[in-house]
Computed example of a mutant assay.
Amino acid sequence: MSDIKPSDPLQEAGDYLRRFAYAFAALDAHNLDRLGELYSADLLFTDPLHEIRGLPAMSHYFAQLYAQVSELHFDFHGIDPVSKGEGYLRWTMRYRHPRLNGGRPIEVPGCSHLRWHSKVYYHHDYFDAGALLYEQLPLLGQVIGWLKRRLV
């Protein structure tokens, strides 16, 4: 009898998601050339505020993002494989922007839906765009806070 066990697609997907999360969390303004290790050239990235097609556009987006914030970090706290080549990562993004929230840290929870072959070709982020941006603006944030209190 052979010691070789059939591979478990969900375990493989979970391992891939862990490696991706670790590498993504290590990104910063000085190593954006590593995006090509994570994403395919024909990448489609979407979130509540953007739709980005292709690795060059993704690299440009990240370069602009890091140029605007004084701090950006992702803590991954959930790995949910769906099938071979597909899964979800749950995370909390922490960032600081000099013109938002008085320059104090902002935390936004979210989730990423990923599809990949050898690299990620589909990345869809889900998060509350209001908590990320609109609620952090001085006047608009007060109006949104008032509306939220009225709705509860």
Rank of each mutant, 00 (worst) to 15 (best):
D8W: 10
A13C: 05
G14L: 11
G14R: 10
D15T: 11
R19H: 12
R19P: 08
A26S: 14
L27C: 05
L32V: 03
L35I: 08
L35Q: 15
L38G: 11
L38Q: 11
A41L: 07
A41I: 02
D42V: 03
D42I: 02
L44S: 09
T46Y: 02
T46E: 15
D47M: 01
P48I: 07
P48Y: 06
H50D: 13
H50A: 14
R53I: 14
G54I: 00
A57N: 15
H60Q: 08
H60L: 01
Y61P: 09
F62T: 04
A63L: 05
V69N: 01
E71G: 11
F74A: 12
F74E: 09
G78N: 04
I79T: 13
I79P: 15
P81I: 15
S83N: 01
K84F: 05
E86Q: 10
Y88E: 04
L89R: 12
R96L: 08
P98H: 14
P98Q: 14
G102Q: 11
R104D: 10
E107G: 14
V108M: 13
C111Y: 01
S112D: 15
H113K: 04
W116M: 04
K119Y: 10
Y121N: 11
Y121Q: 09
D125Q: 01
D125P: 00
F127Q: 05
F127L: 07
G130V: 02
L133K: 00
Q136N: 12
L139Y: 05
L140K: 04
V143F: 05
I144E: 06
L147K: 12
R149Q: 13
R150P: 00
